[in-house]
């Protein structure tokens, strides 16, 4: 089991979600974050004040997957998130010690296997 953490552009989020759903990745969590990834900062002006926006809006996805789902998930994120310009984000794959599905108490592999809808 792995935890896939991806930081992507907010404007690509819809595309990423579309790709993930096509790849049948069903369980995920997102959060709105701000970060700096080496991209060019844009300058904004408010009255006489010019500011360089050093932190860009990003979206962080967290997805717990079983091992054979790691590569399809990465492929889906790449397909949805890549624009080719600096600032597209990162994908990190982390080991997971244990996963528990709260509703049933199922653990590990069972906990990240989607429920077959009736």
């Amino acid at each position: 089991m792995k935890l896939i953490v991806a930081i992507v552009r907010p404007e690509q989020l819809s595309d990423v979600l579309e790709q993930l759903f096509h790849a049948e990745v069903r369980g995920l969590t997102i959060s709105r974050v701000q970060g700096h990834g080496g991209e060019m900062e844009h300058v904004e002006n408010y009255r006489g004040t010019s500011v360089k926006m050093a932190l860009a809006e990003k979206v962080r996805l967290e997805i717990g997957v079983s091992n054979h789902f790691v590569q399809p998930t990465i492929d889906a994120i790449l397909a949805g998130a890549r624009t080719g310009e600096v600032g597209d984000g990162k994908i990190m794959v982390l080991p997971i010690e244990k996963i528990v599905r709260i509703r049933t108490g199922e653990e590990d592999q069972d906990a990240v296997t989607p429920v077959q809808s009736a």
């Binding site: 700096h36 926006m53 932190l55």
Partner: peptide, 27 residues
């Protein structure tokens, strides 16, 4: 060159003599 809802986090004041500094060079 503005945003409606900005928190100002990470906004760096550009001072007049900062023009020579390349923005975001090498991260």
């Amino acid at each position: 060159g503005e945003e409606a809802y900005t928190h100002g986090d990470g906004a760096i004041l550009v001072k007049p003599r900062a023009a020579a500094v390349a923005p975001g060079a090498a991260g």
